[in-house]
Deep mutational scan, measured.
Amino acid sequence: HYVEVNGKKIQATSAEEAEKIAKKFAKIYNATVLDLGNYYKVT
Score class of each variant (00 low, 15 high):
residue 1 H to G: 02
residue 1 H to E: 02
residue 2 Y to I: 07
residue 2 Y to H: 04
residue 2 Y to K: 03
residue 2 Y to V: 06
residue 2 Y to N: 01
residue 2 Y to D: 01
residue 3 V to T: 02
residue 3 V to M: 01
residue 3 V to K: 02
residue 3 V to P: 00
residue 3 V to N: 00
residue 4 E to R: 02
residue 4 E to K: 04
residue 4 E to G: 00
residue 4 E to D: 07
residue 4 E to V: 12
residue 5 V to K: 01
residue 5 V to D: 00
residue 5 V to G: 01
residue 5 V to N: 00
residue 5 V to S: 00
residue 5 V to R: 00
residue 5 V to M: 05
residue 6 N to A: 07
residue 6 N to Y: 12
residue 6 N to F: 15
residue 6 N to M: 14
residue 7 G to T: 03
residue 7 G to E: 03
residue 7 G to W: 04
residue 8 K to I: 14
residue 8 K to S: 09
residue 8 K to N: 08
residue 8 K to V: 14
residue 8 K to Q: 11
residue 8 K to T: 11
residue 8 K to D: 06
residue 8 K to W: 13
residue 8 K to P: 00
residue 9 K to H: 09
residue 9 K to T: 08
residue 9 K to S: 05
residue 10 I to T: 01
residue 11 Q to H: 15
residue 11 Q to D: 08
residue 11 Q to Y: 15
residue 11 Q to N: 13
residue 12 A to M: 09
residue 12 A to K: 02
residue 13 T to V: 12
residue 13 T to Y: 09
residue 13 T to W: 09
residue 14 S to D: 07
residue 14 S to M: 03
residue 14 S to P: 00
residue 14 S to A: 02
residue 14 S to Y: 01
residue 14 S to V: 01
residue 15 A to W: 12
residue 15 A to T: 07
residue 16 E to Y: 10
residue 16 E to M: 09
residue 16 E to I: 11
residue 16 E to L: 11
residue 16 E to R: 11
residue 16 E to T: 09
residue 17 E to Q: 11
residue 17 E to H: 14
residue 17 E to F: 07
residue 17 E to V: 08
residue 17 E to C: 13
residue 19 E to L: 15
residue 19 E to W: 15
residue 19 E to S: 11
residue 19 E to T: 06
residue 19 E to G: 08
residue 20 K to H: 08
residue 20 K to S: 11
residue 20 K to Y: 10
residue 21 I to V: 06
residue 21 I to A: 02
residue 21 I to S: 01
residue 21 I to W: 07
residue 22 A to E: 01
residue 22 A to P: 00
residue 22 A to N: 00
residue 22 A to H: 01
residue 22 A to S: 03
residue 22 A to Y: 04
residue 23 K to Y: 13
residue 23 K to I: 11
residue 23 K to V: 08
residue 24 K to H: 15
residue 24 K to L: 14
residue 24 K to E: 13
residue 25 F to V: 08
residue 25 F to R: 00
residue 25 F to W: 12
residue 26 A to E: 08
residue 27 K to M: 11
residue 27 K to I: 11
residue 27 K to F: 11
residue 27 K to P: 03
residue 27 K to H: 12
residue 28 I to K: 12
residue 29 Y to W: 10
residue 29 Y to T: 05
residue 29 Y to H: 10
residue 29 Y to S: 05
residue 29 Y to R: 03
residue 29 Y to Q: 05
residue 29 Y to D: 04
residue 30 N to K: 09
residue 30 N to E: 06
residue 30 N to C: 11
residue 30 N to W: 09
residue 30 N to R: 08
residue 30 N to Y: 06
residue 30 N to G: 14
residue 30 N to D: 09
residue 31 A to S: 10
residue 31 A to Q: 05
residue 31 A to V: 09
residue 32 T to A: 10
residue 33 V to R: 00
residue 33 V to Q: 01
residue 33 V to E: 01
residue 33 V to N: 01
residue 33 V to G: 01
residue 34 L to N: 08
residue 34 L to Q: 12
residue 35 D to A: 10
residue 35 D to V: 14
residue 36 L to M: 15
residue 36 L to V: 06
residue 37 G to V: 06
residue 37 G to S: 05
residue 37 G to T: 03
residue 37 G to N: 04
residue 38 N to E: 12
residue 38 N to T: 12
residue 39 Y to G: 11
residue 39 Y to S: 06
residue 39 Y to Q: 02
residue 39 Y to R: 03
residue 39 Y to F: 09
residue 40 Y to V: 06
residue 40 Y to T: 05
residue 40 Y to D: 04
residue 40 Y to H: 07
residue 41 K to V: 15
residue 41 K to P: 05
residue 41 K to M: 10
residue 41 K to I: 15
residue 41 K to W: 07
residue 43 T to R: 04
residue 43 T to H: 09
residue 43 T to M: 13
residue 43 T to N: 08
